[in-house]
Design a protein around this nucleic acid. Structure first.
Lengths: 221, 221
DNA sequence: AGTACCCTTACGGCTTATCGTAAAGCAAAA
DNA sequence: TTTTGCTTTACGATAAGCCGTAAGGGTACT
């Protein structure tokens, strides 16, 4: 089993819960931080001291408070760590269950495990740790189909851009103007209407509000 | 200090974290449940056995799963317990920080403490327990102004309901119909328009799409 | 060139949303 | 009871969204 791990999780209660679970797994050195910057510094120092961490368990979202942070999210932390310490095992532990997000974490940063915070989250986390220790990637059942490219709708960058602008409160007219100014084609109101109509059909949405809400649920925007 | 307490919290990790904190407080009998119905049954049985719980620490929102539950939320649990066991101390521990909600929990059900799940949530929870043990009500700083009736610009359950229906793709007409069918007042199209207009202003949203997107970002829906 | 095809754009009708104003309903205070 | 103030409802005008049809503009192939 791992001997030295780091927990990065802003919420004290969850952090403590994870700690208790790791203890039961027989891990000896367990360190805890509530800020991403602290996580980075601890990992950096451990490396310099010649006693590096073997495993990082990190949340994705960290609430901001009065402490200024260079690294503001778990995703940034993962990217940074992956760059400088490619060998370290990383497990993300988050309430986030958006497939797109999970997929990008795996493909872009090569995390070793992803566990959803659910009722049985801790059980899964212990399973994930054992699995990752044996070099087998682990995904929670909720997101295990993230790597399965079958259910890919034909959503492209233009669609995402469109939905983003829509969710920011721009009218279709505004978006048309914005697109033509920024040389994004097609830019006409009619084309935008057409594309949105297609998206509504694809996502089985009744109207634009429903469409944007669905896109947010799916993690597209 | 209390000698017998119950923790009702669906998330395993948080439940475990609370448990560890209570242990450090020197509480001897700490029981844990992940479902509201279990909490009720345990409390009922303890009463019948003549060894009642002195303190209940409960979450407010419990995710539904395959297990059918009669009591579906922390609020319902609190109402039930208050009715049957008026002398039991109750502390709500939730991420919810809507003043209106906290206020109603205090005034309607007379809970003894309310602690927000934040970074330092556990520290506050231990403070709350000590305070409640000495019969002094406790409120997290985030909501300590809940009893101060100055703040009126609040989002209430009606607003949430409205935003939810909107995000599900119903038109304002549909919602009006739905509300009158389900006896939710006010239900007229005009009132719905007015309320949405107020919400748009409160959230600085350009239109309904923007409003729903913002509400989703804030986790209101 | 011609034509076949697809993507883009334009426009008109119809529906829904947004906004202002005003009337009706209701309850507490005078 | 009347007055007063607030909430809810009604309605009309303008704007935005939705939908079908058709015209314009490329590109590739014959």
């Amino acid at each position: 089993m791992f001997t030295k791990t780091l927990i990065a999780e802003d919420m004290q209660d969850i952090n403590k819960g994870i700690h208790a679970a790791l203890c039961e797994l027989g891990i000896k050195e367990i360190h805890q931080v509530q800020y991403c910057d602290d996580a980075y510094l601890k990992i950096k120092k451990a490396e310099l001291d010649g006693v590096p961490y073997e495993l990082l368990i990190t949340d994705l979202s960290f609430k901001r408070d009065w402490r200024e942070q260079k690294i503001r999210s778990g995703e940034e932390l993962i990217r940074t760590i992956r760059n400088e310490f490619p060998e370290m095992k990383i497990i993300a532990y988050s309430i986030e269950d958006r497939i797109q997000k999970v997929r990008s974490l795996i493909t872009s940063y090569g995390i070793n495990g992803y566990v959803c915070k659910t009722r049985r989250g801790l059980v899964e986390l212990t399973n994930a740790i054992s699995s990752v220790f044996e070099n087998i990637p682990y995904l929670s059942p909720e997101v295990s189909h993230a790597l399965n490219p079958t259910n890919d709708l034909e959503i492209n960058d233009y669609d995402i851009l469109l939905l983003e602008q829509l969710s920011k409160g721009l009218s279709q007219d505004d978006i048309s103007l914005y697109f033509s100014k920024n040389n994004i084609k097609p830019s006409s109101l009619s084309s935008i209407e057409k594309r949105l109509n297609k998206l509504r059909i694809d996502f089985k949405a009744n109207n634009a509000i429903h469409l944007v809400a669905t896109a947010k649920d799916l993690g597209l925007i």
